[in-house]
Design a protein around this nucleic acid. Structure first.
Lengths: 252, 252
DNA sequence: GCATGTTTTGCCTGTTCATGCAAGAAACGG
DNA sequence: CCGTTTCTTGCATGAACAGGCAAAACATGC
């Protein structure tokens, strides 16, 4: 195990989970805690993490790469959702991933040794995947909307139309059994619909606060959802409704 | 076992695994570790890998640049160049900006209160501009190339073809009076040429080490350069050559 | 064929680097 | 306040390293 390799794995876990524990890393790498502490000290000196008692937490390197750090709350929840969502992946698949902080967390959680073809219109997702050597990354360009962190418009639609994916990780603004998947923005909804059309299956990962809410623009019906990744604390009644409409439920 | 043969196998494993171990290579090739170390040293000198204690890992030019901006050397120089280059901008203009660390520095240096329309195929540039509310940002999508940090290919070319810009900030790999602007990669050069075609003027900002060097693929002739931003210490003779071919010289 | 020069390679030498251990300091939790 | 955990520092050890050297393989010129 190379020193630099450990550093990279620490950065990965930091990106995926937001935190690392010194003792846990030591046993995972098969080295002494002293060595891990030295690693953490060096990475902290380089500004790549913030050292805390017992381990380290992500400093704000994603504020630059990603939209904003509004992902302040529920960051651990999203990391858990992301980990569960990534469990659905199979090597060699092709994916659509659109915008949203949850989808960015999923992108960061994708293991480095998995070869995939991924098309995204989200700058945050693209940045997170930029150094995955085994990922064939296709950026879906277009007019960039700062509030969404994604590209939309005719160019984006045209690019989506040329592709087909096994799975679509749909960043959901609202999710309701009756109304289905909904979005706040017209152009955004249009892109999502195009991705739905060209995908064999749809995956939605949501925190509890998005369940049973709706936004103005319809994206897809409830029947279209194949996988639904939710927190363990999600209301059972709502989940049963989705399940009866064909969705497979996965608990983070 | 030929030397060049070993080099190729090392490159192969590096592309597949992302890392190599000196000892492991030695036993696999049936040569001494010293020989392997010599191989690694040479490949590192050629920039094809990054040497680390115990072996080597795949060089990641953009990964390092995006995380921190310790993009190695000449950070201050590039910031100075960027500041000078931004001085050429006029509010309301539309721009092409392609890849490279210098162009990322320029993107970061663009004032927040200036309204512009900017089209870029560089993830780094796009990320830097993502929070500029007054910038109409157009992402030029396509196949993402990790080594370049930019999108290339047919999709990118099609997107460029739809746009016209006042200025094109051309990230130059090589710059030579006789050969003009040149690039290392065929697909990259193609995109650059498309941008040149649809721009009213070209701006090139380079550090001294890029002056009087050339890469295999031609992008544009020397005559096409309208603005050349250089360090104060740039060799006067070379600058005079560019000036006589129509370029306006700006010192950082 | 023979002599000469170059390249490649392995070995040797001192040096640097990564790691784990030990001891003291600091931080945490009651 | 004290005990425990975590952290830093210094140090010793072994692995990895660069440079020098010589033998072997190869090419070149006469």
């Amino acid at each position: 195990m190379l020193t630099e390799e450990r550093h990279q794995l620490i950065r990965d876990q930091l990106a995926a989970d937001g935190k690392v524990l010194a003792g846990e890393l030591a046993s995972r790498f098969g080295v002494s805690e002293d060595t891990v502490r030295r690693d953490l000290r060096e990475l902290a000196k380089a500004g790549q993490l913030r050292r805390v008692y017992g381990g380290a937490i992500a400093s704000a390197p994603f504020a630059a790469a990603s939209v904003g750090q509004r992902s302040g709350h529920a960051v651990e929840e999203k990391a858990r959702l992301a980990k569960a969502a990534v469990g659905l992946l199979v090597a060699g698949q092709s994916l659509f991933i659109d915008g949203g902080t949850t989808n960015e967390a999923i992108a960061r959680a994708i293991p480095r040794d998995m070869d995939l073809t991924i098309a995204t219109n989200s700058l945050g997702v693209a940045s997170a995947l930029a150094d995955r050597r085994l990922v064939e990354l296709i950026v879906l360009g277009g007019r960039y909307v700062p509030d969404l962190g994604t590209c939309v418009g005719a160019d984006t639609l045209a690019a989506v139309a040329q592709l087909d994916a096994d799975l679509f990780f749909l960043g959901s603004c609202g999710l309701d059994v009756a109304r289905g998947v909904t979005a706040f923005d017209s152009a955004e909804a249009e892109v999502k619909r195009a991705m739905v059309k060209n995908s064999a299956g749809i995956v939605i990962a949501v925190t509890n606060d998005k369940l049973a809410t709706a936004a103005p623009y319809r994206v897809a019906g409830t029947d279209a959802i194949r996988h639904l990744v939710v927190e363990k604390t999600a209301p059972a009644a709502t989940l049963a409704d989705f399940q009866s409409r064909g969705a497979q439920i996965h608990f983070a």
